[in-house]
């Protein structure tokens, strides 16, 4: 899912300076799952903001709400009107939510509370790692399910570079060399001929280098 993290409180206070009536709007989607912007986080952030503003001598009126998702239009319907009551709506959804509110509720002054990071998985409690680059041309069947686009620092296609030592990436010993893992996996499965094959230069258009992407399912269009 989309992994995001809350911006530092000082930054958020800076973002909402001048706002006197605020709605902190959470999302029960990805950000709730990765504990960045769900109901609980909404409550915590709202109190923190109230305190912070009180301390600065500029009290603020904050309402709290959490939607199921902020990336589907039906959930944003009520906000079109409700949002007008506030000087700003601080969205605790990922960047998608913020954008979508900006698109669908033009009268709402939406502000981001989170930094959206990556597509990732929950490794263990409190830890998430990037897994997918959204490149639009998945080759995971060729690499034992391990993505070199997202998980190799140089997004190499043809095996590990000369900096891979001890199974760690040259940029940081905490980062595993995914190509090392791919090699081991494929060799373990006797699929090492995949490793010898020269993978041609990638077309980066599906990855977004061709412009903002859209996906359409014809059969679902209205």
């Amino acid at each position: 899912m989309i992994i995001a993290e809350q911006k530092p409180l000082d930054e958020i206070l800076e973002i909402i300076s001048g706002v006197e009536k605020l709605l902190v709007l959470g999302c029960r989607g990805c950000v709730a799952v990765c504990s960045a912007g769900g109901d609980k986080e909404v409550g915590i952030l709202a109190s923190a903001l109230r305190l912070g503003r009180k301390k600065a001598g500029k009290p603020i009126e904050i309402d709290e709400a959490t939607y199921v998702r902020q990336c589907d239009p039906e959930y944003l319907e009520p906000l079109k009107e409700d949002g007008k009551k506030y000087d700003a709506v601080l969205s605790m959804a990922c960047g998608v939510g913020v954008n979508f509110i900006a698109d669908r509720c033009p009268d709402v002054n939406v502000l981001p509370a989170l930094n959206t990071l990556f597509y990732g998985a929950n490794l263990s409690s409190g830890e998430w790692a990037e897994m997918c680059a959204g490149c639009g041309a998945c080759i995971l069947h060729l690499t034992g399910g391990l993505c070199p686009v997202a998980r190799c620092a140089k997004s190499l296609s043809n095996g590990p570079c000369g900096g891979s030592v001890g199974g760690r990436c040259e940029i940081n010993p905490d980062v595993p060399c995914i190509w090392h893992q791919i090699c081991e996996k494929l060799t373990g499965r006797n699929q090492d001929q995949l490793l010898r094959k020269i993978v041609p230069i990638r077309d980066w258009r599906p990855s977004g280098h061709g412009g903002p992407r859209r996906r359409i399912r014809e059969d679902l269009l209205p």
């Binding site: 620092a153 140089k154 190499l156 296609s157 043809n158 570079c161 000369g162 993978v199 230069i201 990638r202």
Partner: peptide
């Protein structure tokens, strides 16, 4: 060459291009 990752140099904030790898 593939090239050393930008992190090692004096411009670690640069966007590493890596449009292709050395083999490509």
């Amino acid at each position: 060459l593939t090239g050393d990752h930008q992190k090692f140099g004096n411009h670690p904030q640069a966007k590493g291009v890596f449009d292709m790898d050395s083999i490509q």
